Simulated scan of single mutants.
Amino acid sequence: MRGLPARRIASTALCTALLVGLAGPAAVAADPARERAHAASRAPLPDADALLAQVKSLGDLGGVLTPATDLLNAVLKADNGQLPAADAAELGTAVKDAIAKVTGAAAATPATTLPALPALTRTGGAPADVIGDALAALQKAIDELIKAVTSGEAAQVTPAVTTTVTSLVNTVAATLLGGKLPAPSLPSPPSPPALPTGGISYEDS
């Protein structure tokens, strides 16, 4: 009688081994299917690369606008538009760093033309690098603004602020027109206003 429990244990172990042996190949066969399903679930969206490039253009634009508007806000709230040299340098450096980052990204992107959108006119130059030109103009405007807000001459500040704001508008326009972004879908988009001379300007096409 004592042999029965031992035989039952051996029989149970044998059945378990057989079941594991049978299930093993099925489990192995199921793994590739699971891997394929997992890979399919991780597949990128169609045209994801193009859409990511558009999102990056907008992100880069925000990266420039934020430090530039921080500088302008500080200037316009300061007495006579004058800032301590250290504060002006810190704010100006933040803008310059953002411009340098976007300039590097723009230089690595092939220039394209967008004939379906309003044309950009440039005196004596081709519209091949509108973003780079706009960023260079913005950098120059920021340099002049920093000089003005640390000069002790309030009369120099307003023209410098106006030039900087115009340069920011030009940068936005250049990014929208040269950054491979989709055309606006407004029902009746208004005609863009003419910008001051010396920067990017619009003409009705």
Rank of each mutant, 00 (worst) to 15 (best):
D47Y: 04
A94T: 08
T162P: 05
L186P: 05
E144Y: 04
G59F: 00
T93K: 13
A23F: 08
P115D: 15
E35I: 13
R2C: 15
Q156I: 08
E144C: 13
A17I: 14
G59D: 07
E153S: 02
T109V: 10
V130L: 15
L91K: 03
A27T: 15
A50I: 14
V130G: 09
A29N: 05
P46Y: 07
P115N: 10
V165F: 12
P184M: 07
T112H: 00
S185G: 10
L177S: 02
L181C: 04
L19W: 14
T171A: 10
T12G: 14
S41W: 07
A43V: 14
T175I: 01
G104C: 00
V130F: 03
A33Q: 02
T103L: 10
T197M: 07
G24L: 12
V95R: 09
R8P: 01
A134H: 04
L168Q: 00
A85D: 08
P67K: 02
V20S: 11
V28E: 13
P67M: 01
A26E: 08
R34S: 10
L195I: 00
R7N: 11
V165I: 01
G21A: 09
A155L: 00
V55W: 10
V95L: 09
V55L: 08
N170P: 00
A10I: 05
A183T: 03
K96N: 10
A68W: 07
R2Q: 07
L145N: 09
A50M: 11
G104S: 11
V169S: 13
S41E: 09
T103R: 02
K140H: 08
L195P: 03
A43R: 15
Y202T: 06
V130M: 09
D143Q: 04
T163P: 02
E90D: 00
P44E: 01
N80Y: 04
D97I: 14
D70I: 14
G125N: 12
L176Q: 13
T158F: 09
G152C: 07
I200V: 12
